[in-house]
Each structure stands twice: as structure tokens, then as C-alpha cells.
């Protein structure tokens, strides 16, 4: 009967995970960029949980890649500015490099923290935690449904594109985007029709507006064991970085 339950249900309250995550990120962003060592020390907190939860390194790397475009934008614009203002003598190359390093460290730490603290991405628990922290139930309900159906719709979109591809459609330039839009439009049409059927299926099983849960959230000692180090450690590092001048 318990074949699929080797793993005890997550002992942590999802609210604890969210609080730890938000606290960590706020502390990291608030740390003055005077020295590198606090940022490097922060990394050890998510590192432990990344190991503990066995987050796959590939997924982690992929997440870090999301930082690329905006980091490049900032590098580009700063570089441009640097070149234009060079005669004024104010910014120096080393300063610029340091600033970008700080940006990279801060954003990278936040990405590590999301991967580390959100566990294995259990959407139900996440939604329950968000609701417990005051996020409107309608919003978490929409999140849960979006999470449930995006893969399905992405696959349907893939089938539509394959079907168009089989008849010779290759999007090459911006002009092809209208055709791509028509494909996507037929996916939207199907999605809205599906939404109607899902709505019927929900009503058919007594849905009255929000997802019912039968496991109410309860704080436990695990949460304290988790929250104390997860919050105190970064706070201590931040305080130390302020003290060391």
C-alpha cells in the first residue's frame, strides 16, 4: 500500500521554506558590496541544502543561465557608458569589474537559494505555503492549474508546429511570426475549450471555488531546526560584514 511513500512527506512547513528563502535573499541583497568574503560565505548556506536535497547540478546550471541575458545587458550598457565617459576619469575598469562581480554574486546566490530552499518543487505544498502567508487563494489556485497544464499545452504546441513543419513551414524571419501566431492561436482555442471541460470536471466533483486540503499547516520542531540556521547564519554574516570596516 505504501509503495510510493518511502520518502516521508516533507517534514518542513512550506511557510518555513518560503520565509527562509525570502530572508536569505533580502540579506544578500542588503549586504554592502565592500568585500567579496560575505558573499562567498553566504554560498555555504544554500550549498548545504543543495547537497541535502540532492538538487541536480544540471538543473542548477540551467537556472544560472537565466541570469545571462540581463547580466549581459548590464555589462553592455556599463561598458558603453564607461567608454563614453572615459575622459571624465570617474569610473575605473576595476570598479566596473567589481560591480559586475557583485551583481553576479548576488543574483547567483539568489538562484542557488531558490534551488536549495524550495525542495523538490512540490507545487501543492508551495501553493499551500503561499496561501498560509496571505497570498489570495485564487492566485495559488491559478498557479496550481498553470503548473498542471503547461507541459500538456507545450506538447500540443509542438504537435501543431510539427504538423506545420511537415507541410513545409519553417519560421525564418519576422514575417513568419504571423503564421506562428496562427498556430499558437489554435492552441489558445483548444486551451480555452479545455478550460471549459476542466471546469465541468471540477464542478462534477463538487468544486466550489478553492482547492480543499485536508492537511492543515502546522509548525513543528523541524521548522525551528531549519529556520534558525537558515536565517541566523546569513544575518550573522551580514552583521559581521558591517562590523568589519
Amino acid at each position: 500500500m505504501d509503495g510510493d511513500r518511502r520518502l516521508p512527506a516533507d517534514p518542513l512547513d512550506p511557510r518555513a521554506r518560503l520565509i527562509a528563502l525570502l530572508g536569505f535573499v533580502v540579506v544578500v541583497v542588503a549586504t554592502p558590496p565592500r568585500a567579496a568574503w560575505p558573499f562567498l560565505a553566504y554560498a555555504l548556506v544554500p550549498a548545504f541544502f543543495i547537497g541535502y536535497e540532492r538538487v541536480s547540478p544540471r538543473a542548477l546550471a540551467r537556472r544560472l543561465l537565466f541570469l545571462g541575458p540581463l547580466l549581459l545587458t548590464v555589462v553592455g550598457t556599463r561598458l558603453l557608458w564607461f567608454l563614453l565617459q572615459h575622459d571624465s576619469g570617474q569610473p575605473t575598469l576595476q570598479n566596473e569589474v567589481w560591480l559586475l562581480a557583485v551583481l553576479g554574486m548576488r543574483s547567483g546566490l539568489a538562484v542557488l537559494a531558490v534551488a536549495a530552499f524550495m525542495g523538490h518543487g512540490d507545487i501543492n505544498r508551495l501553493a499551500q505555503g503561499l496561501r498560509g502567508l496571505g497570498v489570495p487563494a485564487i492566485l495559488t489556485g491559478v498557479m496550481e492549474q498553470a503548473y498542471r497544464y503547461w507541459r500538456l499545452l507545450w506538447r500540443e504546441l509542438g504537435l501543431l508546429r510539427d504538423a506545420a513543419g511537415a507541410r513545409g513551414f519553417r519560421p525564418r524571419h519576422l514575417g513568419d511570426t504571423v503564421t506562428l501566431g496562427r498556430l499558437t492561436g489554435s492552441l489558445l482555442l483548444r486551451s480555452l475549450q479545455r478550460a471549459e471541460r476542466v471546469h465541468h470536471a471540477m464542478l462534477g466533483r463538487g468544486f466550489a471555488g478553492t482547492f480543499p486540503t485536508s492537511h492543515p499547516l502546522r509548525w513543528s520542531r523541524y521548522d525551528a531546526l531549519f529556520l534558525l540556521p537558515a536565517l541566523i547564519l546569513p544575518a550573522a554574516i551580514c552583521a559581521a560584514s558591517h562590523l568589519v570596516e
Binding site: 507545487i123 501543492n124 496550481e144 492549474q145 503548473y147 498542471r148 497544464y149 500538456l152 479545455r194 471541460r197 476542466v198 465541468h200 470536471a201 471540477m202 462534477g204 482547492f211
Partner: peptide, 15 residues
Amino acid sequence: VGLVFQDPDDQLFMN
């Protein structure tokens, strides 16, 4: 009344 719809993906709406 238990209604089972044609496309199971419409009916399995939880995660």
C-alpha cells in the same frame, strides 16, 4: 452522479 469525461487530462486537474 459520477461523470467520467472523454479526455482524462481534463479530469486529472490536480498535480
